[in-house]
Structure formats: structure tokens, C-alpha cells
């Protein structure tokens, strides 16, 4: 899809630039809009929107914070009071968590290849992982360890060469054409500027 960025490292850079604008945001409404923006961004890059997870995280963190009463009492249920300060703190923390999860998902959605020795080792791990996922079959009853052994031995005996695992080549961590890079850079710049513009409205107190 054309709106997707092809270059994983540009997504990481864009995400890193958005983190301060998100974490330092004082306004709850702006933060809510930012979370919505980040969810849409992650969804556009192939990540699933998990409504149940969002609801559970939002409800559980807010509920836990409500137990620490703080500020004006909004309502009371028996001896338990729902206070404004606790409610706002809970919502802020929950939205920060949800926003960071989706920002993180957007950043790693392009299967980034990290540079250096450790990056190559990570690639090797993922190739073995893909082999495990595709080769794993439901074991016969009572033969779980034997099935596991077979798989581990297959990997050990070199079903994947160093070349396949990327352990011998020096990759740059950049995939795709030069043009894709220029377009991606433009899209990333647009996203980061729009995100910071929204944040600036919150910092300046123009938006709550």
C-alpha cells in the first residue's frame, strides 16, 4: 500500500522523534488525540487494533489509580470515593501505556534489521524462529521431548547456513530502492511535524 513506509529505519527514526512530544504532553485531550493518531498509524502499517486489550488496559490502570484518592470527590459508592485527581492520573497513565505500545508497534512493523554483530545475531534468531514456527507439528502423545529434539537437532545440523541467517554478509539494514527512501523520508517528516504541531497546541495550552 502506497501510504506505508517501506524503510524500517525511517519508521524507527520517526518514532523516536515523536516520543518526547508524546511523553511530555501535559494535556489529556491532546494526549487522547495522539493515542488515536498512533493507533491509526500502527494499523496503517499492518498492526491489528486490539480493542479488548485497549479496554482492559484503560479500565485496569484507571481502576487501580482510583484506589489512591486524590482531589475533588466526583462520586461515592459506599465508603469508596471516585476522585478527580486519581481519575485523571489513571487515564493519563493508561493512555501513555497504550500510546507507547502502538508507537512501538509502528516503529518495529517493518522488521527492522539492526546493525552490527548483535543485529546479525538477532536476524539469525528470527530465522530459526521462523523455522520453528513452520516446522513445528503437533507431537504424538508422550513424544513431546522427542519432537522438540528433532527440531533442535535439525537447526543445529545446519538447515540454515550463515549466509541464510545473514551472519556472514554485512548488511546496511536498509531495504528497498532509493526512491522509496526519499518518499518515506517525506512521509515521516509529515507525520512527525503533524504530531509535534498537535503537541505544541497542548504545550501552549491552546488545546486542553
Amino acid at each position: 500500500m502506497k501510504y506505508r513506509m517501506q524503510k524500517p529505519d525511517i519508521r524507527i527514526a520517526a518514532g523516536l522523534l515523536m516520543i518526547p512530544a508524546f511523553l511530555l504532553q501535559p494535556g489529556l485531550v491532546v494526549q487522547g488525540l495522539q493515542v488515536f493518531f498512533l493507533i491509526v498509524l500502527a494499523a496503517m502499517h499492518g498492526r491489528k487494533i486490539r480493542v479488548v486489550m485497549i479496554t482492559v488496559v484503560l479500565a485496569s490502570i484507571t481502576a487501580m489509580n482510583l484506589l489512591q484518592e486524590n482531589g475533588r470527590v466526583l462520586a461515592s459508592i459506599g465508603s469508596f470515593s471516585i476522585t478527580l485527581g486519581a481519575l485523571l492520573t489513571g487515564l493519563e497513565k493508561a493512555m501513555t501505556l497504550i500510546g507507547m505500545i502502538y508507537l512501538s508497534q509502528y516503529m518495529v512493523s517493518g522488521k527492522p534489521r539492526f546493525p552490527g554483530w548483535f543485529g546479525q545475531l538477532l536476524s539469525k534468531q528470527f530465522l530459526y524462529f521462523e523455522h520453528l514456527v513452520t516446522a513445528w507439528k503437533k507431537p504424538e502423545k508422550g513424544k513431546f521431548i522427542e519432537s522438540l529434539d528433532t527440531l533442535l537437532e535439525e537447526m543445529e545440523q545446519g538447515i540454515l547456513t550463515d549466509e541464510e541467517t545473514g551472519f556472514s554478509d554485512s548488511h546496511s539494514g536498509i531495504a528497498g530502492s532509493r526512491n522509496a527512501g526519499i518518499w518515506d523520508f517525506g512521509k515521516a517528516a509529515g507525520i512527525v511535524i503533524a504530531f509535534w504541531f498537535g503537541s505544541a497546541m497542548g504545550f501552549a495550552g491552546i488545546w486542553p
Binding site: 501505556l97 507507547m100 518495529v108 534468531q125
Partner: peptide, 21 residues
């Protein structure tokens, strides 16, 4: 190294590498 790979791999697979999780 094994532990770091486990942590980083999980972060990448679940997409939580840059989050509180």
C-alpha cells in the same frame, strides 16, 4: 547474550520494544 536476545526478540515480535512493557 541469550537473555538479551530473548528480551529484544520478544520486544520486536510483540511490538513493545519502545514501550513501558
Amino acid at each position: 547474550i541469550l537473555v538479551t536476545l530473548k528480551i529484544a526478540g520478544q520486544g520486536l515480535i510483540n511490538g513493545t520494544l519502545f514501550s513501558y512493557i
